[in-house]
Structure formats: structure tokens, C-alpha cells
Amino acid sequence: MELIGIYDCAGRPDKSGGGAVFQSILLRWHWRPEAFAAYIARAGEGRNSAPRIAVGFILIVLFHIIFAVAAFVVGPVILKSYDAVLGIDRPLMLYFDAADAFFVTRFGLALFLGASGCMWLGTWFVVRIVHKRKLSDLMGATARLSWRDFANSFAVWFVIGAISSAIFFAMDATATRSETALLDWGLALLPLSLFILFQSSAEELVFRGYLQQSLAHRFPHWFVWAALPATVFTLLHWDSDALPWMNAAYLASTLVFSVAMTILVYATGNLGAAFGAHCANNIVALLLFGADSDYRSAALFVGLPMQDPTWTPIEAALLVILSIALTATALAFSLRPRSPFKLRGTQDRPNSDEVVQVGSPAE
């Protein structure tokens, strides 16, 4: 990577002699800081005070909790209805004891993904009611999602994810083909992939869209608008059932992925690439190579769960190194100008005279 200039967030030359890492350095990669500045400026079209951001995020979390609880309640009802069709009659309370068993099935997985995807509704409510602006403002600098970037990013991260999982399973002598019939897996592939898209895009909408955009408009320092959403996103993946070193490795890998998604949004001023990357990553993790004890029912291949007590610290360290190396490779394919999968981000070049500087005051 070769340094070719120092710029402010609107793409103008920076005469201050430096700046934050995420905001001031334009590399010979396919990065467009003026597009990210225009993306941030859209938060200023509504009411974007710090208290509103905090209240908005809390409301989105509450929406998620409400739908998660609803899924937990609906799950046993679905089980009872299914048994009723088969002529089995048992008290409803017994089905709540089997709720855990329901959520590890493909139907339960779809219900879980759907509940997470309902953060779309929570984000829409917060943006419209709390911030008084449109949900489309979160899509990109021109209020449109780049589907070209979605497709290119999906292709890159799907291949990289498959390679990563294959290497991970090569470390596991117990890895094998799952008991799921190939025909059943194929029939469930499309609908479950759509649920995964719903869930993964909702997470990106909240963390790399709403939270990152809103914070960047209020606070000029990257350790607020970039580090804070990445940290929260990572901690939400805490797995207390795993060994300490495997939990640490999982969190580290999640943090690496979260930083990569932040870079994609910064480089393009659009959520399209992050949507595609996250969707591809989750399809590989849930439908191709199942390595989580809670979500193995839909996977084509299964191996030793990450919660298994036989994983060693060395294997955990190798997992982190592998994650860093392959994530860097995926970013290179996405951001290098000569890559066939290079990202374009915002198609309409923003007018720098209309760009609002990051951190500019807003109500």
C-alpha cells in the first residue's frame, strides 16, 4: 500500500499534517473518503444528538428482545400444533421444556434468524420517530444500497469463508458429513439463506449503519464511531459454554470480522458490501460447516463444536491467525483497484461542497 495523499473526511487536502487513521489517510486501495463523509452527512438531515443515539440503540435492543421472547413463546406452540396433526395430545407446558430442542432444528433456526432480522423494524422505528429521518439514509451516501457491491462482496467472502472453514475442519479429526439428507439440505438451502440474509443485514444495519453513522456525525474520533460499535458487536458473541481460550479466540475472530465490515463501509460509503460479506459468512457458518453446538441441524458438514472441552490453546491461537490472514485476503480482493471484485460504493460522486464534516453539531 502506497500513501498518495492526506485528506479530510470530505476528500479535500488536509493541511493539518495528520489525522485519525480511519479518517485522514487515502491509500492506493479503492477507498473513497468523500463518499464516507457524504454517508455520515445524511445523519445531519435529522435530529442526531448524543442522547437520541443512546435512546435509539436501547429501543432497537428492546425490539430485538421482544421478538426473541415472542419466538420462544411461538416455538412450543408450533411443536404442539405439529403433534396435534399427528394425533399426539400433551399439556402445552411440557412443550416449553422442549423449547431448547426446538431451536436446534431447522425450523427453530429459521425462527431464531427471523427474530434477529426484526431489528430492521426496530431500526426503522428509531430512525423515523427518534431521529426524524428516513431509513434509506442508512443505506449509503445517495440513500441507495449498492447491489453490485453486495454481489462482489458476497462472492469474495463466500469463497474465503469456505476455505477458512475447510482449514478449520482439517484440524478436526472428527469432522464428517452430517446426517441431513442431501435432498432435504438442498430444499432448505434457499429459504434458510433468505432468513440468514434477513438476520445478517439487520445486524449490519444496526452496527455499521445506524450506530456507526450516527456516532461518526457526532464524534470525529475513530475510537468512538468505529471502535465502539465493533466492541459491542463482539461482546454480544460471548460464549460462556466454550473454554476460556476458545471463547477468546471466537471473540477475537469476531472482532477481526467486525473491523473488516467497518473498513468496507468506510471505503465505500455504502452498506452493500457489508451486507454481502456478512450474509456469505453466516451461510458458510450455518449451512455448510456447522461448528456451533446450537446451530448444527442445517449444516451439510459438522465437526467438533467450538464448545467442546478438547480444544487446545494452540488450536485457538491458530484459529485467530487464520481469521486475520483470510480476512486480510478478502479485503485485498475487495479494495484493490485491479481486483475483478473491487467495490464501487456510492455510484453518484458526492459534491464535496455539500458534505458535512464529521463531528459537526446537530440537534
Rank of each mutant, 00 (worst) to 15 (best):
Arg52Tyr: 03
Val284Lys: 09
Leu194Met: 08
Asp241Glu: 11
Thr262Val: 14
Leu243Glu: 14
Met261Ile: 11
Ala43Met: 04
Val206Ser: 10
Arg336Asn: 06
Gln199Met: 14
Thr234Asp: 08
Pro13His: 04
Arg208Glu: 06
Ala299Phe: 06
Pro91Phe: 03
Val104Gln: 08
Pro76His: 12
Asn152Gln: 15
Asn282Pro: 09
Ile58Asp: 05
Ala43Gln: 08
Trp238Leu: 14
Lys132Asp: 03
Pro220Thr: 04
Ser116Ala: 11
Pro229Thr: 07
Ala274Leu: 05
Met139Lys: 11
Cys9Tyr: 12
Asp241His: 07
Thr254Glu: 03
Ala216Ile: 04
Lys134Asp: 13
Thr174Leu: 02
Leu286Asp: 07
Ser339Leu: 00
Thr312Asp: 15
Ala316Trp: 13
Asp348Ser: 08
Ile167Phe: 10
Ser352Ala: 12
Leu187Met: 14
Val74Pro: 01
His217Asp: 11
Pro313Thr: 05
Leu322Asp: 13
Ala362Pro: 06
Asp8Glu: 13
Ala260Gly: 08
Asp89Lys: 15
Ala260Arg: 09
Trp147Asp: 05
Arg90Asp: 06
His221Cys: 04
Phe169His: 05
Pro33Phe: 14
Ile40Leu: 10
Cys9Gly: 14
Phe150Pro: 11
Asn270Leu: 03
Gly303Pro: 02
Thr310Phe: 05
Ala267Leu: 12
Ser178Lys: 09
Ala325Thr: 13
Arg177Gln: 08
Phe107His: 10
Arg42Ala: 06
Leu183Phe: 12
Glu315Ile: 11
His221Gly: 07
Arg42Cys: 09
Phe158Ile: 06
Tyr210Glu: 02
Ala252Asp: 09
Arg47Glu: 12
Val104Ile: 15
Asp292Gly: 05
Ala41Leu: 01
Ile40Ala: 14
Arg133Tyr: 02
Ala70Asn: 00
Leu26Asp: 13
Ile324Asn: 09
Leu187Ser: 06
Ile160Lys: 02
Gly44Asn: 07
Tyr210Met: 04
Val126Asp: 06
Leu121Met: 09
Met171Asn: 05
Ile167Gly: 11
Val320Asp: 04
Pro220Tyr: 00
Val130Arg: 12
Trp238Thr: 11
Ile53Tyr: 08
Gly209Asp: 10
Leu183Glu: 06
Thr329Leu: 13
Asn48Gln: 06
Arg338Lys: 08
Pro13Glu: 08
Val355Pro: 02
Gly276Trp: 05
Lys15Tyr: 14
Met119Thr: 15
Pro340Ala: 14
Ala260Tyr: 04
Phe102Asp: 07
Leu287Phe: 09
Ile167Val: 12
Ser200Trp: 11
